[in-house]
Amino acid sequence: MNIIVCIKQVPATNDVKINKDTNTLVRDEAQSVINPFDTYAVEEGVRLKEATGGKITVISMGIPKVADILKECIAVGADDGILLSDRAFAGADTLATSAALAAGINKIGDYDIIICGKQAIDGDTGQVGPELAERLGIPHITCVRKIEEIKEDYIRAQRMTDFGYEVIECSLPAVITVVKEINEPRLPSIKGMMKAKKAVIPVWTADDVGADKDKIGLRGSPTKVIKTFTPEININTEIIDGAPEEQAHKLVEKLLQLQIKVPV
């Protein structure tokens, strides 16, 4: 089974500091890591390979440094890594990212399943997986928590929903996005690390993958960020006075304004 795993590099922490004057992110040489959700995707790929044989190719779009993170995937069991890196890819929103990945994956060619993490922790959109599936013209299943059965041209999986789960089957090739319940990612092995150290990550440009320049990067991105700002967070303790009923009422009113999602 030929398995492709899509990964993204993200800042090591989403506890970003904001420069209050300029309203921009302060990234003091923040360390970059593989998106945590993508580690489950890589692990699931490795487990599939262990069960069915085949090959795992990990692909990412990003700056040249992302090659290091692709190598980390090799250390935990992936066979190859491919980096899509080109100024023409820069400034991509999810739609343009899916176009770049689709072009890269089409160049790889032969694949049975594409695995992505549920979402990336920096953008939290979770859109690239389904958009990629649409671009490749294949079905997708999001939020997979368990692969029940997989055969040459068929997968049956459990998808987590807001109220429980559902069992879905679809033909392969397909894209699945995985949640962290699906597995526990392994640590690398020394042999894997040595293999990773020696690995050469091919870097593919937009021309290499024959990407349509109108569909990738800034040009291919319909959405545009026009403003960023820091949400107001009150760090001074506010003591709520009054009779007990009043205190409770005031508190709940304040908390409801935070508009935090309450599971039903």
Partner: peptide
């Protein structure tokens, strides 16, 4: 098991 998978038993 983790140490085994990591090849550390064979260093």
């Amino acid at each position: 098991k983790i140490l085994a998978e990591s090849d550390l038993f064979g260093v």
